[in-house]
């Protein structure tokens, strides 16, 4: 019998706790496949966030530290500086990375910390039951924006890739989406490039993955994917926002 698909050994056998239709599971698999295929799982250290992925330490089959809310890049900094030969990644949501941890995110980038950040943007606080996030869309209804996010009151969503693209220490920034097979394949390539960026010692790499939260958005999984395509991608355009390897070549030409 021919094996056509196997769960990557980069993940443990623990059963994921994520809701049906949630894209966290896919993104976990992509990250685990990448560090496994790069042959570095035995020297990879993950940093789990606070949020839906808080228990990522049970799923990633590598050493993991669980960090306080928003502090994953600071914790990752400590690990990487203590053990420069390891491969260190953080896995963070939008509240963690773009609200309470904004300073840690921007300054880890500014220092050019040689770490890889996986940023899962689903435009909502999932773990606490669906409150407004820094990336919640204008007009989007959440538990704490029950009449829709009103920018006059609650301000505008943050575009983290665009913001970080102004930071010299950031080496690789790409926004991808987990909404389709094609985009998921592209997401894996982006994650691979972000890990390769670290292996090459080029500095801070971040991949923002647009993802869904069917439970808290109040949508069936397929409709949630449609909502992501129709609302999030126009506001958060996909693409490479910075690539020091490519940009360096262009500058040299």
């Amino acid at each position: 019998m021919q094996t056509v698909f196997e769960k990557t050994p980069g993940l443990t056998d623990a059963v994921l706790h994520y809701c049906p239709g949630c894209t966290h599971g896919i993104i976990h698999r992509l990250v685990a496949e990448v560090y496994t295929e790069l042959g570095v799982s035995d020297r990879t250290i993950g940093v789990a966030p606070v949020g839906c992925a808080v228990m990522a330490y049970d799923y990633f089959n590598c050493d993991v530290v669980q960090a306080a809310h928003g502090r994953a890049p600071a914790v990752a900094t400590g690990i990487k500086r203590a053990r420069p030969d390891t491969v260190v990644f953080t896995y963070q949501g939008d509240g963690d990375l773009a609200a309470i941890g904004t300073a840690e995110t921007i300054h880890a980038a500014a220092r050019g910390e040689n770490i890889t950040v996986i940023f899962v943007n689903n435009a909502i606080y999932g773990m606490t039951g669906g409150q407004m996030a820094p990336t919640t869309m204008p007009g989007q209804i959440t538990q704490t924006s029950p009449y829709g996010r009103d920018p006059a009151v609650a301000g505008y969503p943050l575009r983290m890739c665009e913001l970080l693209a102004t930071v010299d220490g950031a080496a690789y920034l790409e926004r991808v989406s987990a909404d389709s097979v094609k985009n998921i394949r592209a997401a894996k390539q982006a994650i691979r490039r972000a890990f390769e960026c670290q292996l090459a010692g080029r500095g801070f790499a971040l991949v923002e993955v647009l993802s869904t939260c069917p439970t808290n958005w109040g949508l069936e999984p397929v409709k949630a994917l449609d909502w992501l395509r129709e609302n999030m991608i126009p506001y958060y355009p996909l693409g490479v926002y910075k690539d020091s390897a490519r940009d360096g070549k262009e500058a040299a030409q």
């Binding site: 400590g78 053990r83 390891t86 840690e104």
Partner: peptide, 17 residues
């Protein structure tokens, strides 16, 4: 560090390592 908060969390990361 960029803050005391970041500094203590860097300590946490290094100690964990």
């Amino acid at each position: 560090a960029e803050s005391e908060i970041a500094a203590i969390n860097m300590v946490l990361g290094a100690s964990a390592a």
